[in-house]
C-alpha cells in the first residue's frame, strides 16, 4: 500500500497547505482559488478512502457548484479587481496563536482515538452483530459504492445487512433523503426571492 500512502501524503499536504493559504491570503479571489484547491484535494482523499460517489459529488456539487457560486458572490460584491479588507498584524498573531493551541488540542484528542481504534472496532462488531473484521464496505468492490448508497437512500442497507449475523434488517435513509430534497427546493425558492427582492426596491427608488 506504499503507493496509496504516497498519494495520501501528496493530497493531504495539498489540502492542508491550501487550507492554510485560505486563512493567510488577504485577497478574496485568491482565497477562493486556494479553497478550490483544498476542496479538490479533499475529494481526492475521498477517492483514496474508497468513497467514489462522495468524491464525485464533492467535485460536482462543492467545487463545480458551490464554489462557482461563491466566486460569483465575490465578483458581485467587489468594488475593484483587488479587494482587501485588511486585518491588523496583532489580530493575525493572536489568531495564529489561538489556532495553534486549538490544533494542538484536537491533535491530542485524535491520537488516543486512533490508538484505541482497533478496540473500538471490536466493540462495535460485538454491539452490532457484524462479523466482517476491518473490511467495512470494501468487500463490495474497491469503492464502487454507488449502488449500495442508492439503495440506502431507498431505505435498505445491503452494505450493513450482508455482513450482519443477527438477521435483523437495518433502516435506511429514505426519510432524511426526502427531507433534504424538499429542503433544497425551499432553499432554491428562498434564495431566488432574497436575491431578487432588493433589486425591485432599487428599481422603484430609481
Amino acid at each position: 500500500m506504499a503507493g496509496a500512502q504516497l498519494l495520501f501524503l501528496l493530497f493531504a499536504l495539498a489540502t492542508c497547505a491550501s487550507a492554510v493559504m485560505v486563512v493567510v491570503s488577504q485577497n478574496v479571489v485568491r482565497m477562493a482559488f486556494w479553497l478550490i484547491i483544498s476542496l479538490g484535494s479533499t475529494s481526492a482523499l475521498y477517492f483514496l478512502l474508497h468513497a467514489d460517489f462522495v468524491g464525485a459529488t464533492q467535485l460536482l456539487v462543492y467545487v463545480g457548484g458551490t464554489l462557482v457560486l461563491l466566486v460569483f458572490g465575490v465578483m458581485l460584491t467587489a468594488s475593484g479587481p483587488h479587494v482587501k479588507i485588511k486585518m491588523s498584524p496583532a489580530e493575525g498573531f493572536l489568531a495564529a496563536g489561538v489556532g495553534c493551541l486549538f490544533l494542538a488540542m484536537i491533535f491530542f484528542t485524535v491520537i488516543p482515538v486512533a490508538n484505541d481504534w482497533d478496540e473500538v472496532v471490536i466493540r462495535l462488531e460485538a454491539q452490532n452483530d457484524v462479523t466482517d473484521a476491518g473490511g467495512g464496505y470494501n468487500a463490495l468492490g474497491e469503492g464502487n459504492t454507488t449502488r449500495p448508497l442508492g439503495l440506502s437512500f431507498l431505505g435498505t442497507r445491503p452494505d450493513k445487512d450482508l455482513n450482519s449475523t443477527s438477521g435483523t434488517l437495518s433502516t435506511g435513509y429514505l426519510l432524511p433523503f426526502e427531507i433534504v430534497s424538499v429542503h433544497l427546493l425551499v432553499v432554491l425558492i428562498g434564495a431566488a426571492y432574497l436575491a431578487r427582492a432588493k433589486r425591485r426596491v432599487d428599481a422603484e427608488e430609481a
Binding site: 474508497h50 437512500f153 442497507r157 450493513k160
Partner: peptide
C-alpha cells in the same frame, strides 16, 4: 466509515 465495520453510514 472506511475504517469501521458499520457500512456506509458515514458516506451517507
Amino acid at each position: 466509515s472506511r475504517f469501521s465495520p458499520l457500512g456506509l453510514d458515514g458516506q451517507v
